[in-house]
């Protein structure tokens, strides 16, 4: 199936927005019929999910945090008060 260029614009707009939100009715109806657009959107969502997962694996190493507080001349709060 060849996508209507107007629909492609709408799909692109959705792809630059909040992917967790429900797509508008026009896109919903389109992806029900258009398998390729459905797959395309799914791949974009998975890409974001994978990058988020990978990013969450990183946090500031202990020595970096220690150096930071030394540089700022501040006392590091106890562990329980640390950021995520």
């Amino acid at each position: 199936m060849k996508c209507d260029p107007k629909l492609i614009n709408k799909v692109c707009d959705y792809l630059g927005g909040d992917l967790n939100s429900e797509p508008c009715q026009i896109i919903k109806e389109h992806i029900e019929k258009c398998h390729n657009c459905d797959i395309f959107i799914d791949k974009i969502k998975k890409t974001v999910e994978i990058y988020q997962k990978a990013d969450s694996c990183d946090c500031a190493p202990e020595n970096v945090t220690r150096n930071l507080f030394l540089k700022l001349d501040l006392c590091e709060p106890k562990k329980s008060e640390h950021s995520k």
Partner: peptide
């Protein structure tokens, strides 16, 4: 100040 730095260290580092 320490609390603010601590709250945002990981986020700003990432």
């Amino acid at each position: 100040l320490s609390q603010l730095v601590s709250l945002y260290t990981n986020r700003i580092y990432r």
